[in-house]
Nucleic acid binder design. Structure first.
Lengths: 200, 200
DNA sequence: CATAAAACAGGACGGTTGTCCCGTTTTTAA
DNA sequence: TTAAAAACGGGACAACCGTCCTGTTTTATG
């Protein structure tokens, strides 16, 4: 059968399909057989690029999940005027996106974190690194806020941890109730807290 | 072989073993065969009490997970002097328990919520009910705080949502990093926020 | 152009999974 | 006491899963 080799493109198609499957249906609920069909890839090609399912999962985390956090969270916060503005914008974007889709499948990072952290050390290390990068980016922005307002009211690192935790937990509740309400509520609470502490 | 029928006790042993397995290794990672061995139960007995794995999972959620939330969260908050005191006590208890065990397997409710919410409507409904009960209990306690202090500074329901979200997310990060630090940080942040808003 | 390596096709394979079935024992009910 | 129902023992069963293997085609290298 005629074909044209495209190792990089085929790899991307595979990781894309696996990212969608792992972060919506879950890692263990996604069968390799289904991934091959969804990505339009044969068994030989898959085995050539990813010898094991674990290798594919690791690629999904390091390539796609990390990029998703970067795109949906870190970048918008960085370019915002203040941290509070950035957080508000991020939540608003995510909520409207969820309402458009009509279903809540949860935070990709959190989904894989709870399912895979205790299963394998490589998974845990990769996920932990993304969480660290996420928290650090928010903490950096908070430090900039404090410098601009010439105040020193709270610990930026601790507040960043709270922000990430509140978002992750709110998304978990949103998934459990299939409703965006927990997200809108927590967004309002977080911005209220931040504005209280940065403008006095 | 001689035996004595004990349907209720056998059922409890099964649900106990399944609770531990589902909330630590995960639902899909726990094989029925292993559960039978761990609970000391034969296939016939299991099929008699729980015709499917889903039925067993539902029993775990409704019987054990709901009770765990009640014992570790709702009851301590209810008997505490203030909500802030209760939350601080709950976090302290959980943190010391995790340090004793030496590993973070995550919040039982959150673990199953993220893994099973989108898999089956019965799972989702059962999990959502527990989250609702949890939030309501904290909101009730917050309302009592506000009445006692004769102030009306914030929305108790919204704050309760934030508390549950922050805890769930902090536990997720704790699981990802296998460290209690996110929990201690968020506990300090939450109590600080609450004490700021209830004593002015 | 020769040759080796990389890329891919297609399917087989053993192990595991959840479920189900049949037979036996214990308990209940009449 | 006896018949029916509940409780349980033990294992079989088909379907599924992830991995691996052999062979072919494309590409890089000299």
């Amino acid at each position: 059968m005629a074909r044209t080799n495209d190792p990089e493109g085929l790899r991307q198609r595979l990781v894309d399909a696996a990212y969608v499957a792992f972060t919506t249906r879950g890692y263990h609920s996604s069968a390799i057989h289904d991934l091959k069909r969804e990505a339009g890839v044969t068994g030989g090609a898959l085995a050539h690029h990813f010898p094991t399912k674990k290798a594919l999962g690791l690629a999904v985390i390091q390539d796609r999940v990390a990029e998703a956090v970067e795109t949906t969270w870190i970048a918008p916060v960085r370019v915002a005027t203040t941290t509070a503005d950035g957080i508000q914008a991020v939540f608003a974007t995510i909520v409207s996106e969820l309402e458009r889709k009509g279903a809540v499948s949860g935070c990709p990072l959190n989904n894989l974190a709870l399912e895979l952290s205790r299963e394998d050390e490589a998974f845990q290390a990769a996920i932990e690194a993304i969480f660290l990068r996420w928290r650090t980016a928010i903490a950096d922005k908070l430090r900039a806020d404090l410098r601009a307002a010439r105040i020193d009211d709270f610990d930026p690192d601790a507040m960043a941890t709270l922000v990430v935790a509140a978002y992750s937990g709110a998304m978990a509740m949103a998934k459990a109730s299939q409703s965006v309400v927990p997200l809108t509520v927590c967004a309002e609470q977080l911005t209220s807290i931040l504005q209280n502490r940065t403008s006095q």
